[in-house]
Amino acid sequence: MSFFAAEALSLSFGGVHAVRDVSFAVEEGEVFSIIGPNGAGKTTLFNLISRFYDPDAGAIKFGGEDITRLAAHRIAAKGIARTFQNTELFAHETVLANLLIGCHAHRRTHLLEELLFLPRARRQDLAFRERVEAVIDLLHLQGYREQTISALPYGARKMVEVARALCVAPTLLLLDEPSSGLNPEETEDLSFWIEDINEDLGVTIIMVEHDMNLVSQASHRVLAMADGEVLAVGEPAAIQSHPDVLRAYLGD
């Protein structure tokens, strides 16, 4: 059985098929990229996995469990974290506060302990902080720790989002166009970080990405989509020269 599997997922919005009969499986430890022209249904697929949308048909399996009907806020505790295409950070807060919110899924205290800030609440916060600092060290965010998000350059915001997702301590990380808006150097760095996250932390990664250099550098397998349907799955090089994929991008 696969680590993660989408089985015949379909979703349509008012007659338009955003995703139609999409199936794929991801093995543990893989970096799996999803490519396709705009409107191919990539982000919709992510929103299905994060449970923001309910699929019309099909199932999502993760770690041998069916998570198709789980509430959106239960996904993090299962070990799935994600980033967003146009960044969805908590804009009025510092980087540190954003990352601490990322630890929320590991909350064990109840309201009374928090109102009185009993020793257990303090211990929990210290533990959260250790986790946050480990992520800050990994992604070299030390210089931004105390800064407010709205004061950060866009590239840094993208990385803070990745960091926040890592604070969830996921086993599966969903990256929605991590390189969009980054300059070539930042994209270069990103590919190393993806490698680190994948190899050192052992996190399985599914990413939606347009930058084919990054895709072929970082990913083990690639899935190509167009018009909500799967065109092909395979090694990056094979996908890049696949006739159906070329046709979807370049037209007939």
Binding site: F84, E88, F90, H104
Partner: peptide, 18 residues
């Protein structure tokens, strides 16, 4: 912190397990 998260971005808050 969850309250602040809900204020600034409901979708992100949800995907953080809030």
């Amino acid at each position: 912190r969850a309250m602040v998260a809900v204020r600034d971005s409901e979708v992100a808050a949800q995907s953080m397990g809030i």
